[in-house]
Every structure is written in structure tokens, then in C-alpha cells.
Design a protein around this nucleic acid. Sequence first.
DNA 1: TTAAATTATTGTCCAAATTACAATAATTAG
DNA 2: CTAATTATTGTAATTTGGACAATAATTTAA
Lengths: 231, 231
Amino acid sequence: MYRIEFNDFFTSAFSVDCIIFGYSHGEIKALLIKRAMEPFENLWAIPGDLIYPDEDLEEAAERVLFELTGLKQIAMHQSQTFGKPNRHPQGRVITVSYFALIRIDDFEVKASSWAGDVQWVSLENMPALAFDHNHILSSTYEILKLKLQNEPVCFDLLPERFTLNEFQQLYEFAFDQAFDKANFRKKIKYIPLIAHDEKQQNVKHRPAKLFSFDKKTFEEATVNNSYTFKM
Amino acid sequence: MYRIEFNDFFTSAFSVDCIIFGYSHGEIKALLIKRAMEPFENLWAIPGDLIYPDEDLEEAAERVLFELTGLKQIAMHQSQTFGKPNRHPQGRVITVSYFALIRIDDFEVKASSWAGDVQWVSLENMPALAFDHNHILSSTYEILKLKLQNEPVCFDLLPERFTLNEFQQLYEFAFDQAFDKANFRKKIKYIPLIAHDEKQQNVKHRPAKLFSFDKKTFEEATVNNSYTFKM
DNA sequence: TTAAATTATTGTCCAAATTACAATAATTAG
DNA sequence: CTAATTATTGTAATTTGGACAATAATTTAA
């Protein structure tokens, strides 16, 4: 009987894929690159690449994201690992996906390395992507929705100063349902927000007050176990 | 400048690690094996091994678990991927962890292949494990606790027929706090349980009624969106 | 300057859930 | 038959949640 030797296993590669979500004009979007190399040349894809043999996973995710899109200093979190034997046409490649939420307007993106283009694409209008990336993306979006319900990640997507309506609309988009304004405000009663004197600009009606998330107070409350985020 | 070629990357291996949780005598336990080979010979470890080059991840998890412990037909779910460059002393090995919850008494375990022994070990009494397995285990336990709050996985751990107190005690153990009996029963009011005529045996006091989880009704209610599990 | 239009913000009422605690019921052990 | 023990159910006060209404602040157009 053929006995597989230890080194026969060392014939695979790992990649990372970085799913970056943003929010603008009332829509959640993902940052995609246009592949300027084979395989899947000219198709849109989640930014990702192979991991160096001596590189840590998270470090690789940061490097790859920077090389392809110019984004740096983004806190990324591991989500899932995809490893169907034939998901990569050139060999066995298992990919570990990382994801992050950012404020689109706070960062500038620029395609480089083998990325021919980079764009924010609305989740509602997603083209066919390279590899199994449509699957990875939708599966990661489900994780995002879970986090929106249980962690204050909404403030990573919203602008630093936001109106309570913008806050509400983000949840209405993600969960595809309308909420009552008065009740939404009651629900967020315990989330520490800083009310600013500043108001919304350039609107054709009574401008709303701007708020920002009081992260420090929130974190004090959670280490105390005196509060848990629930939406 | 040295240019890394595509094939330079194909020098790594993947493994799967299977974290199997069980519950008995009021404690949550994990199934461990004693390594009968280098590295870390004679240390306890999470059952796991390298993935074949053409094998799907989940398939590998099932095979490895069976080979080492004799367990089969266990529904396993992916949790996290660990890939620090030096986590394996013999080369770059990234490991994908899977986990499952089972009823200890419903299965027989038996060490085989290179597992010298197999044992259920209480989480409260965990020795130093091989590789980064203590880290993997505690990180997976956090995921289990999250699931206990949001999915009816408690019934995978409890015996098929259980008393309401046993049900409550599982949560009291996992979250290390006591709950009021009457209020616990109100909280679980919407979880479909089947009440049996049968009662607890061999106790020195009034025996409690036995219940089992009505999975079918639960699933009908969740596809309807008429109920979501929350503890 | 003013009224209409529009949206922001706050309040009220009722139903439902949560909490703390008490009362009652069913067993076993002697 | 009684005490001890635990199971099970009930109550009352409080808090939360949802539907809906009222009021406030601003812009626009006459």
C-alpha cells in the first residue's frame, strides 16, 4: 500500500482575501479590484493574494490589501476559510478571508501591483466575480449582519459625525426593513453618543443634530459588564 | 530584485483540528487524544492531522476524527484558522479548526492510528496541550458560548431526554452564573419542548419531568421567521 | 414677512417581557 | 404520617417594546 510521506503534503498554498465593506449614499458596498493577470483576467475580484511561506496570516492580509488597493492601517478580522480542492484553477489554494469595515470617505484607494482597477461596488449590484468570490462575499455579508446586531461595528461604517436618521438607515438597509423613529431612539438609549452643537448642512428642511460614538465610555461600560450591545 | 515564483508558495501544508465538546456530570468537556508520535509525543492534543492535497476541508475533518477517535457521523462546523509561521515545529502548517457538540454517552470513542489514548477532559482541568492547542481550545470555547446564546446547540449536548433543571444547569455552567428557576422557565417558554410522562429516576426527592427538544416544530418556526432563539 | 411643507424630536398609551420573590405540589426517607 | 427536599406554578412591580400622536425647528415659496 502506498504510504503518503510527510513532505507530500507540502504542495499547497494559502491565500488571504480581504473583504472591505463601506457605506455611502444609503448602501453597503464592497471594495473590489479588477484582475490584470490570469487566471480570471479582467474579472472583478475580492482583493487577495498568496501568503508568503514565513508570513503570519494577519500580516499577509494587511500587506496584500495595501499592495493592491493602497489601503493601510485597517483593522481586519478573520472570518472564514474556503478550501474546495478545485477552487483555484492553478493548484490547491486554501484561502483565509479577513474582513473590515471602513468609512469610504476617510480613505483613498488606488489600484496597484496586478490590480488594474479598484472600485466600491454596491452589494445590490454585484457582477460575477473571479474564483468563488461571490460565495465568499455573500457569506461574509451574513457575518457582517450578525456583527451589526451584536457589536458596535455600525460606527466603523458611519461617518464620524452622523444623524440619528443616518444611523437608523444603516440598519434599515442591512435588515431590509423599516423601523419606527421614536422606537429606534429608545432602543439606542444606552449606547453612549456625544451630541454636538453642529447640525446637518445643505438639507431642504429642519437639519438634524449630529452625534458621534463615545467609544471610551462604551468600552468602560463593557469591561464593567454593565452593558452589552444588542440591536 | 528576487522575484518569488508562483511555485515557491506551494511549500505549505494544511491540517484540520476537531474540537469535540461534550457535557456530563455538570461539566463541559473536550475530547482529546494522547499523541503517540513526534512532535509532542505523549502530550495531549486536539484530534487533528494533515489534509490530503485533493481533499475538501470538511471531508478531511471527518476522516481525521474517525481515524483517531473512531467517531463518525458527527456534524462539524468550521470555526477558525490558525497560522502563526512557527506553530508547527516541522514546517509551515496552517490549521483549520472544526468543532462539534455531542452527547458523550451516545458515542463510544477508541484511540487508533497514531493516537495512543483518547479521553474526555473537563475544560476546568485542562493540562498543557501540544502545539497551540490550548489557545485553539479556549478560543473555540468562546465561540461555543456565543452559539449557546443564539442557536439551539444546547440540545446537542444534553441527553435526548432532560429535566428543565439540567437544561438550566448547562447554561449556569457555561456562563458561570445562577439563574432564577421560575424566570428561566419563562424565558424558554417559546422553545418547543415535548413533555414526556416519564420522570427522572434514582433521585432522593420529587423527580422532575423529562422533556425533549421538538426539533421539527422549532425548524418550522424558524423558516417562518416566527421565532428566533435567544438566551 | 409669513404660511406651507418637510423633517426632527419628544411624549403617551398599552401590551409584553423581565425580575424578585412567594406559594403550592409531589416525592422520598425515616 | 411527618419532615425534608426539590419541582412547579403564581403574583406583583418594573422595565421594555411597539403603534401612533403631538410638537419643534427649519427651508422654501409666495
